[in-house]
Lab assay of single mutants.
Amino acid sequence: IRVTEDENDEPIEIPSEDDGTVLLSTVTAQFPGACGLRYRNPVSQCMRGVRLVEGILHAPDAGWGNLVYVVN
C-alpha cells in the first residue's frame, strides 16, 4: 500500500501481509512514531481512520485499493 507522512508528500510503498493486513510495526519501521493510518474517503472526501486491532491494520471494506494512506 502507498503511505505518506502528509497528503502532499511522495508516498512510500509498504508491503501487506499474505492475508491483506498491514502490520503497524511495518509502518513504524518507515515512519517512527506512527500509531495508525488514515485515508481520504473517495465518496465523502472526509478523512477516515483505518481499523487497528492488536498491532494489525485491517483494509477498508473495499480493500486497500489505489488510495494513499497518511500516518497518524
Rank of each mutant, 00 (worst) to 15 (best):
D61M: 10
A59W: 02
P15C: 11
P42L: 06
L57W: 01
N8W: 10
A34Q: 01
I12T: 10
A59V: 06
G49T: 15
F31L: 03
P42M: 02
T26V: 11
E5I: 06
L23H: 04
R40F: 13
V22P: 01
L23F: 03
L37R: 00
W64I: 03
V50C: 09
T21L: 02
E5Q: 10
P60C: 04
V53W: 09
Q45I: 04
P60Y: 00
R38E: 15
V50F: 01
N72K: 10
I1W: 00
L24F: 07
A62M: 11
I56C: 13
D61T: 07
N66A: 10
T28P: 02
R2W: 11
A34H: 01
D6V: 07
E10L: 11
G49E: 14
Q30A: 14
N72V: 09
S44L: 07
L57G: 02
M47P: 08
F31Y: 07
N72C: 14
F31C: 05
R48L: 15
S16V: 12
E17S: 08
W64Y: 02
R38G: 10
D18K: 13
A29F: 10
F31A: 03
R40N: 06
V68N: 06
P42W: 04
C46V: 13
R48T: 13
N72H: 15
L57N: 02
N66W: 03
I1D: 04
L23M: 07
S44T: 13
G36Q: 02
V71E: 02
Q30C: 14
E5R: 08
R40C: 09
Y69T: 06
I56W: 05
R48F: 13
P60F: 02
M47R: 05
S25I: 06
V3W: 01
A59N: 02
A34K: 01
L37S: 01
L57S: 03
E10F: 13
C35P: 02
R51C: 09
E5F: 14
V71S: 01
N72P: 02
H58F: 12
D9V: 13
M47S: 08
I56L: 09
S44R: 07
N41Y: 08
H58P: 01
P60H: 01
A29M: 11
L67H: 12
A62S: 13
T4A: 10
M47L: 12
H58D: 01
E13C: 08
N8P: 04
Y69D: 02
H58Y: 11
R38V: 14
D61C: 10
T4M: 08
E13H: 13
V70L: 13
Y39L: 01
P15G: 08
A62C: 14
S44A: 10
D6M: 12
V53N: 10
R40K: 10
V68G: 03
R51P: 12
R2S: 06
Q45V: 04
I14D: 02
Q30S: 12
G49D: 15
V71T: 11
R40A: 07
W64P: 00
D18E: 11
L24I: 04
L67W: 11
V22H: 00
C35D: 07
S16P: 06
C46R: 13
E13M: 13
A59Y: 03
L67Q: 12
I56F: 07
A34Y: 00
